[in-house]
Write a protein that binds this DNA or RNA. Structure first.
Length: 436
RNA sequence: GGAGGGGUGGCAGAGUGGUCUAAUGCGGCGGUCUUGAAAACCGCUGUGGGCUGACGCUCACCGGGGGUUCGAAUCCCUCCCCCUCCGCCA
């Protein structure tokens, strides 16, 4: 969430930055300020009265010790009256604070100054392009056709098991998926300096709030219930991304400055309800309820946030380069950015069978927006101050769409798929053969 | 699922209604002494909020929330977490 102090002291700046998102959030700023004002007023008065109550209570203790009971009783009556007023003021302060914070939780992060102004995806500037679109001397198949011919995925039975939007990987398909996961983890862990972690795939709602998924996007998550106990419903959620558990690893901690930067990579399946999303009715792997992903997370000093973001994007790009895939990097404009992000790069890989680019990675610096929500801090060595670090997350990369781009790009005239060199040791073959 | 035991500062650990402004020990930081170090001694050593131009003043926090009381680490209710044993289980 945003810094209340910033909101108070630089109100117009906050309004202007929010307005660039084109979502109307700037309209809520005055309401937040009013609630904050009412909270502080009540608090100031309550604390003054509490100071008096504390000192008088001590006097009462002294009077009782000296057996001056009448005087003690008189003071008791006096303090009792104070107590009623204190209760009232505490309630006002608490209510204002709850109202203020629940509003604040619904306000997105401020876009970084370097982010292009824009309304939607059409305004996203292209940053760079790698390679070029694959060309074929034959008519290339799309990934659905390839998966069926090579029996990589059994779409029908996936749907039979769990409904549309769920995939059953089979044979070489299952092995390719597993090979990719291992390749990605090894790459980031061995070559890019990330510490590998294997997080829970179910998290408490406080973690979802911490990364900014909740309260705004509660409808996108799969809530979990324990058996028949309906009272447990909605306390735990299937992770929509490994960001949810991994970014929260150090929540409510005060790290030393020396511990930074912290870099984690993690594999997890990702579960997305995709309520109301378009394109889910059709077959394929582009938009599904469950997919695999290797996620990159960094906790860094605020001075290094943007430098580390650039490195993270390059780490994700390396994946596509090694696999011989054509892609472009774009920078999300102010109107297209996610809720918690201050700046986001998307990486889109070319899928020749689809004839489109597919988003396989989204790398963001959320600055202190999430660390403030989860109360994650570090102690600055020079003056002992506790500061909020920058929190970064990026896909390194999403698997299902990477799978699509890979099979579509490396398909051969004979119907087989050429396995990119770095993947061969993982898969144990150079070629995925046409199914008999 | 059943039974029991716990949750207090960076750590260990006392405190069961009133100088708790939380003892004591360890660790850490600074100082004295020393050529240097150790030892010894002295001092400091949590988090968040509010008020103030500032020096400062003040409030809250002993797992979370609520209650009793003039006053709560301490009593009551409730929730969470951890540990031990039993049962079930990959």
């Amino acid at each position: 969430m945003l810094d209340m102090k910033l909101l108070r002291e630089r109100t117009e700046f906050v309004r202007e930055r929010l307005a660039t998102r084109n979502a109307g959030d700037e309209a809520r700023v005055s309401e937040v300020l009013a609630l904050d004002e009412s909270r502080r007023a009540a608090l100031a008065e309550a604390e003054q009265l509490k100071a008096r109550r504390n000192s008088t209570s001590k006097e009462i203790g002294g009077l009782i010790a000296q057996k001056r009971l009448d005087e003690a009783e008189a003071k008791k009556a006096e303090v009792r009256a104070l107590g009623d007023r204190i209760t009232e003021l505490d309630k006002t302060a608490a209510h204002s604070e709850v109202a203020r914070d629940s509003l604040l939780m619904m306000i997105p992060n401020l876009p970084h100054a370097s982010v292009a102004l824009g309304k939607d995806a059409a305004d996203n500037p292209e940053i760079r392009v790698h390679g070029q679109k694959a060309s074929f001397e034959f008519t290339p198949y799309n990934h659905v056709e390839l998966c069926e011919r090579l029996k990589l995925i059994d779409f029908a039975r996936g749907a039979k098991l769990s409904g549309s939007g769920f995939l059953l990987y089979t044979g070489w398909g299952a092995r390719l998926e597993r090979a990719l996961i291992n390749f990605l983890l090894d790459l980031h862990q061995r070559e890019h300096g990330y510490t590998e972690v294997a997080p829970p795939y179910i998290v408490g709602e406080h973690c979802m709030i911490g990364v900014g998924q909740f309260p705004k996007f509660r409808d996108q998550a799969y809530a979990v219930q324990e058996g028949l106990d309906t009272s447990t419903m909605g306390k735990l959620y299937l992770v929509p991304t490994a960001e949810a558990p991994v970014a929260n690893i150090h929540r409510e901690e005060i790290l030393t400055e020396k511990q930074l930067p912290v870099r984690y990579c993690a594999y997890s399946p990702c579960f997305r309800a995709e309520a109301g999303a378009a394109g889910l009715g059709t077959r394929g792997m582009i938009r599904v309820h469950q997919f695999d992903k290797v996620e990159l997370i960094k906790v860094v000093h605020p001075d290094q946030g943007y430098e580390e973001l650039e490195k993270m994007v390059h780490n994700a790009e390396t994946v596509l380069q090694r696999l011989g895939l054509h892609y472009r990097v774009i920078n999300l404009c102010t109107g297209d950015m996610g809720f918690a992000a201050a700046k986001t790069y998307d990486i889109e890989v070319w899928a020749p069978g689809q004839g489109t680019y597919l988003e396989v990675s989204s790398c963001s610096n959320c600055e202190d927006y999430q660390s403030r929500r989860m109360n994650l801090r570090f102690k600055r060595e020079s003056d002992g101050q506790n500061l909020f670090p920058h929190l970064l997350n990026g896909s390194g990369t999403a698997l299902a769409r990477l799978f699509v781009a890979l099979v579509e790009t490396h398909q051969q005239a004979d119907g087989s798929i050429q396995v990119p060199e770095p993947l061969r040791p993982y898969l144990g073959t150079d070629v995925i053969p046409l199914a008999s």
